[in-house]
Structures are given as C-alpha cells and as structure tokens.
Amino acid sequence: MMWIAAIAALALAAPYAVYPIFLMKALCFGLFAVAFNLLLGYTGLLSFGHAAFFGFAAYVTGHAMKEWGVTPELGILAGVAVAAAMGLVFGLLAIRRLGIYFAMVTLALAQMVYFYCLQAPFTHGEDGIQAIPRGKLFGVLPLDDMYVLYYVVLAIFAIGVWIVWRAVHSPFGQVLHAIRENEPRAVSLGYKTERFKLAAFVLSASLAGLAGATKTLVFQLASLTDVNWHTSGEVVLMTLLGGMGTVLGPVAGAFVITTIENYLADIGAWVTIIQGIIFVLVVTLFRRGIIGEALAFVERRRRQ
C-alpha cells in the first residue's frame, strides 16, 4: 500500500515539475496499454488492431464535440460506446480463430477501419479533425485550464486502471487466467470460454476507446496517426517493454516510449528504428519487461 500512496502523491505533484501535456499523453497511452494488456497479459490474446478502437473513439469524440457541440463527458461517452460496439463486432469475428490467426485478423480488421477513416468525409482525411473545443466538464470544470485538464485526465486514467485491476482480480479474471494457461482445460471444466474471451475483448476495446477519447481532449486533434497500424504496434511494444504480467507494467512502458518519442521526434525515422530495436531486445533478452524483471529481482533478493 505504501508504494501506491507514493505513486499517487507523485502523480498529483508531477504537473508542477514536468510539462503537463507530455504527462497527459503518457497517461493516455498508459491507459491504452493497460487496456490492451487485459487481452495480451491476462487472456493470452494478441490483438494487433487496437489502434482501431483508440483512434476511432478519438474521431467520434472529436466529431461529437466539434460538430454537435456536446459537453466533454458526453463526447467521451460517445467515443467509448462506439469503441465498445466495434469491439463486439471485431471480437465476434476474431475469436473464431486462435493464436497467430487472431493477431492477423485483428490487424486486417483494423486496417479496414483505417481505410474507412481515410475516405469518410467526417474524419477530414489527411487533415484530421482539428481545433476541437475542450469545453467544460459537467458544465463546470473548465478544461482549457491546463491543471484542471491534467487532474481530469489523471482521474480518468485512475478509473480505467481500477476497472482493469478489478476485472483481473475477480472470478471473471480467474477464468481469463485459466484460458490463458490452458483453454481446453477451461472448456472441460464447463466454462464457455468464447463468451469470456469476447467479454474481455469488449472491455479492452472500450477502455482503449476511453484512452483515445481522452487523448482527443488533450491534443484537441483526432488524426489518421491514431488509427494507423503503427499505433497498434506501439501499444504492443509499450506492454511488452513494461511487462505484460503486471497491471502497471504497461504504464511504465508507455512512459518510456512516450519519452523516447518526445526527444527523438525531430530526427526522422529514428523513432521507428529504435522502437524496432527495443522490440528485438525485449523479445530475445528480457521477456518479462521492466516491471516484471524488477519484481523478479526483488523476489530473488528476498529469498537470499
């Protein structure tokens, strides 16, 4: 409990020391990665198309707030609802195939969403939806104030992570765990594993949508980058790097990757190259990720 309090204190004080926009970006991607990890880390399903939920929710929220003038909470709700519905459709299709095919199917479906966004008029193609007004949350909290916005984003992040934490540490989460370890066994115990996988998929997609919708509030922009397969790859990388066996590992991964992007954004394709190198290093050398390796280290020390 000590360390949770420490992290909370750090998160509350952080915007006075670090550029808030950067922190909010990292928090959005952190939530995105936590949501993604519900599938990869806790159910053993590798989705290579999560950018579709993240990016499309960003578009829906942006469109609702800019064109229809709705309040931020309704905009976010719209984004999450659409992401959930997409998650249901994608999930129904993707869970018909296992393992490696699951990854290919989700990637292909996400690419379909990308092409749709490229052509659909409401996304404004290459320009994206720009200058989205942030408005007032519940009609009172002015989100144009950087600090108010930061604490709202932090609250959304905390709620999202709490939902995943509750899901993982519940009987539902135990069944997901069983599916990851040995699906035939879970079936033989009488669980309808397809339903559990679908529920996990929809939950993960909704929270990825929440992250995307929140990102729209922060940057006042929804663009093709968010639905691109590169973003799907990025969230996989964040999760792997941070450690997919833990709830908070992906957040650490998101902070590291966002930091790298922040510093290297100006020098062309190097971000892609470095991301690729990190992928190769993590997969070949430390598959437990940063947090996983750290926990293993602490465990070893304790035993001595």
Binding site: I100, A103, G233, V236, L240, T272, I278, F279, V280, V283
Partner: peptide, 10 residues
C-alpha cells in the same frame, strides 16, 4: 511475430 515485427520496423 513480435520479433519479426520489430525487424520490419528497423
């Protein structure tokens, strides 16, 4: 899949 994805990015 993940390793070859990394290689593709590089």
């Amino acid at each position: 899949l993940l390793l070859t994805f990394g290689l593709a990015l590089i």
